[in-house]
Design a protein around this nucleic acid. Structure first.
Lengths: 215, 215
DNA sequence: CCTACCGATCGGTAGG
DNA sequence: CCTACCGATCGGTAGG
C-alpha cells in the first residue's frame, strides 16, 4: 500500500485533510510545539513551503489541528454516545469512550487535549483560548447529562452538577496521566471511581444499581 | 537590588544552585523543552558555553531541574505537613498545600509536575522515567497517610487505599488544569470534593466531621 | 504546489 | 568561566 500524498488524494482526501490527519497524530504524540512544518513535510514528502502555504502560518496550522482533534472527539466519542438514552446511561457511555480513547490510543498519543492544555496554559493567545474552551466544552458535555439524569430522577435533585462534572473530569485526567506513564490500574480505577461517584448521588440505590449493571 | 550572578553568589549560592533556581522557574512556566541553554544564559548574563559546562548536556540540566523541583515540593509541601498529626489531618494538610502551591503559584507556572509529565509521557528515556517515579511518589505520599488514617480508625478498614489516593490525585490534577486555564472555582471544588471523598470513607461520621472542622 | 534562500536559534565543541 | 564557531533546524519569504 502506498501512503504517498497523491495515492491518498485519489481516495478522496484533499491535501489539507491529509496533512491535518498526520498533523493531529504527530501533535497527539509530541505536542503542538514539536509539531514542526519541516517534520510534517518530510513525513508526507511535500516541500516545506508547499505545506506552509496550505495553512499560512505555524499558529494557523496549530489551530487547525486543535479543530481537527475536536472533530475527532465529536465523531468518536460524543456522537456514538448519543445513541444511548440520555442521562446516567449516556454519561457512562461518554466516560467509557473517553477512557477507551486514552487506553487504546485511538490517536497515537492517547488523549489529545490534556497535554496540549498544559503545554499552552501559561502562554496567552488564541491557542490557549481555543484549548481552554474545549476543556470547558468537555466539562459541559458531562454536566449536561448530569442535569438530564437529575431531571429524569436518576440522580438526586440536590446534586451539585458542576462539582460532579469536575470530579468526573478529574478522574479522566488522572486516568490519562497514569495510563500514559505506565502506572498500574489507571483505567480500571477511573471506571470504578466514576461509577461510585455517580452512585453516591443516586436517587434510588436499587434502581441505580440496575442502571449500572446494564451499562 | 542587583540580581547579577556575582551578587547572588555573595549571598551564599553556588553558580549551579543559582542557575537551577532560575531554570526551575522557567521550566514551570514553559516546560522542559522550551527551557533552552541560550535563554537561561541570557537571563542570567552568563555565556552559553559557561552554563553548558555546569551541567554537561541539556538532558542533565533537565534532570537536575526535575530533582530541584522535587526538593522544592519536599521543602514546601511534604515537610510542613509533617508537623500535623499523621492520618486524616496530615492528608488534608498535604492536599491543601498542593492546592495552594498551584493556586498561589509558589513556582511561577503553578504545579511543576503535571505539565512536564504530559510533555514527556510519550518519549521514553531517563526524563520520562524520573517524572513517572515522582508522580508515583506523590501518589504514595497520599496513600501512606490514608493507610495511617485506616490504622488509627479514622477511615473504615475496607477503604481501598490505592483507589482513594488515585481519586485525590485526580482532584489535584483537575484543579491544576482548570485553575491554570482560568476556569471558575477550580480550587474550591477540589477542596470540597477531597473532603467529601474522605468523609465517604469515615469510620465514624460525627468524629470525622469534628476532624474536618479543625483542619 | 516547487527550489532556493533568509535570519534566528538550537545543542554542542574547540581552544583557552 | 570566556569567545568563537559548528551543523542542524526553526518559521517564514521570494519568485516562479
Amino acid at each position: 500500500m502506498s501512503t504517498s500524498a497523491s495515492a491518498s488524494r485519489e481516495a478522496g482526501l484533499s491535501s489539507r485533510e491529509l496533512v491535518l490527519r498526520r498533523a493531529i497524530d504527530l501533535a497527539s504524540l509530541e505536542g503542538l510545539d514539536r509539531l514542526t512544518i519541516g517534520r510534517l513535510a518530510g513525513d508526507l514528502r511535500l516541500s516545506k513551503s508547499g505545506l506552509f502555504a496550505l495553512f499560512g502560518s505555524k499558529e494557523r496550522l496549530q489551530l487547525a489541528v486543535i479543530e481537527g482533534a475536536r472533530a475527532f472527539y465529536v465523531e468518536h466519542i460524543i456522537l456514538p454516545a448519543q445513541r444511548v438514552p440520555s442521562g446516567t446511561r449516556r454519561l457512562l457511555a461518554l466516560i467509557e469512550r473517553f477512557l477507551l480513547n486514552s487506553e487504546e490510543h485511538w490517536l497515537p498519543g492517547g488523549c489529545f487535549f490534556t497535554p496540549v492544555a498544559h503545554e499552552f496554559d501559561s502562554r496567552p493567545g488564541p491557542i490557549r483560548d481555543a484549548i481552554a474552551a474545549l476543556i470547558q466544552e468537555g466539562n459541559d458535555v458531562l454536566a449536561q447529562q448530569i442535569r438530564v439524569a437529575v431531571a429524569k430522577g436518576e440522580l438526586r435533585a440536590d446534586t451539585d452538577v458542576a462539582e460532579l462534572a469536575f470530579e468526573l473530569q478529574g478522574l479522566l485526567f488522572a486516568a490519562n496521566l497514569h495510563g500514559q506513564l505506565g502506572l498500574p490500574d489507571a483505567f480500571a480505577r477511573a471506571r470504578s471511581l466514576s461509577r461510585k461517584a455517580l452512585r453516591g448521588h443516586a436517587a434510588d440505590d436499587g434502581a441505580f444499581a440496575r442502571l449500572l449493571a446494564e451499562s
